[in-house]
Design a protein around this nucleic acid. Structure first.
Length: 326
DNA sequence: AAAGATCCCAACCGCACGATT
DNA sequence: TAATCGTGCGGTTGGGATCTT
């Protein structure tokens, strides 16, 4: 438990009398109780006034933050589910660090929590790979490795999803990437031995193409995702996540054609991708090598993209992308 | 077992913006 | 119109918890 050291009394701007009494640092049970009871009686808003009337020696901002991030009854606690993680990755790829906007699609989760998740989990991976978390390369890794893995997790889980139809915040179709590259599920075909590595310039071309398409179709969209969207209920059915790049596309001919363009129409690209991913590993190391080992016997269940670190050498196709940045 | 490193997250800060005075 | 207030947002920090050596 956090100890209220400080310096909890600290001067800020304002009158000397008021400032000397302003508390900072961790909240006590007594303060929480005061705040909760006051809001139960009088509601939220006018936080500065609320703080005074509730008898709290806190700033209005502090009260608001404590309520929204911690005390509010519908605040969900505990680890983020794979569904939630997937949604965060997807929405962040579209909106960037718009935490509050992202949080609106994750009921019970606060912008602070999502921000912390991004910084501690996602950016950590980028740091270990020594690439910019906002780079195209890392975006590619997220889309092609992390998200498919989460989708698999979701597909293989019967746990209730945060993204169910009862959830009003996500009842609308949520635009999502159909991953630009094929995934690598257990059902992958045997690996050809002598294929050339996938030229990542193809992927770049694809991304640029899709960027343009998206921009032209949506005006202000800065997202490189497809114009296609995926219903949340579909997201929760991702046990059907495709085993080929075109399977995911379903009946959407526009996107299908677009992706086919990007893949040179030739389904060999699928094989090529699988080659790259399968040959990236270095036995005995963490990260993708673990994936690789699982791939060998068709079992991916033991690998958690969210928790392990990745080795940049193992992700060499994406490393090529890095040089194309900016 | 102890020390150091790293992780994690609650809380704070500064800024921006719209509403009100 | 300018000043002030209230609110919300994104970035950063502090320090307890956990892991590693």
């Amino acid at each position: 438990m956090r100890v209220n050291t400080m310096s909890s009394l600290k001067k800020t701007t304002g009158s000397k009398e008021d400032d000397a009494e302003l508390r900072r640092g961790p909240w006590t049970l007594e303060e929480d109780t005061l705040l909760v009871h006051y809001i139960a009686r009088h509601g939220e808003g006018r936080w500065n006034l609320l703080a005074k009337r509730a008898g709290l020696r806190r700033t209005g901002k502090s009260c608001r933050l404590r309520w929204l991030n911690y005390l509010k009854p519908d605040v969900k606690r505990g680890n983020l589910t794979p569904q939630e993680q997937l949604l965060i990755l997807d929405l962040h790829s579209k909106w960037g660090n718009r935490w509050s906007k992202i949080a609106q699609h994750l009921p019970g989760r606060t912008d602070n929590e999502i921000k912390n998740y991004w910084r501690t989990r996602v950016q950590k991976q980028a740091r270990h790979l020594r690439i910019d978390a906002n780079s195209t390369a890392f975006q590619g890794i997220i889309r092609c490795l992390w998200m498919p893995r989460l989708l698999q997790k979701i597909g293989g889980s019967s746990a209730p999803s945060a993204m169910t139809a009862q959830n009003p915040a996500v009842s609308q179709p949520i635009p999502i990437y159909a991953p630009p590259l094929p995934t690598f599920p257990p059902a992958l075909p045997p690996l050809p031995q002598q294929e050339a590595p996938l030229d990542m310039s193809v992927i770049m071309h694809c991304m640029e193409h899709r960027q343009q398409t998206s921009d032209s179709e949506h005006g202000t969209s800065s997202c490189i995702s497809s114009a296609e969207s995926m219903n949340v209920s579909q997201m929760s059915q991702l046990s059907e996540y495709p085993t080929s790049p075109f399977q995911a596309i379903g009946s959407n001919s526009d996107y299908s054609n677009l992706v086919k363009d990007c893949y040179y129409v030739d389904s060999n690209c699928y094989d090529m991708e699988s080659i790259n991913l399968a040959t990236m590993s270095v036995p005995g190391e963490l990260g993708i090598s673990a994936v690789d080992r699982h791939m060998g016997d068709g079992d991916w269940s033991g690998y958690d993209f969210g928790d392990n670190e990745w080795n940049m050498d193992e992700l060499w196709p994406f490393r090529n992308l890095q040089g194309k940045e900016t």
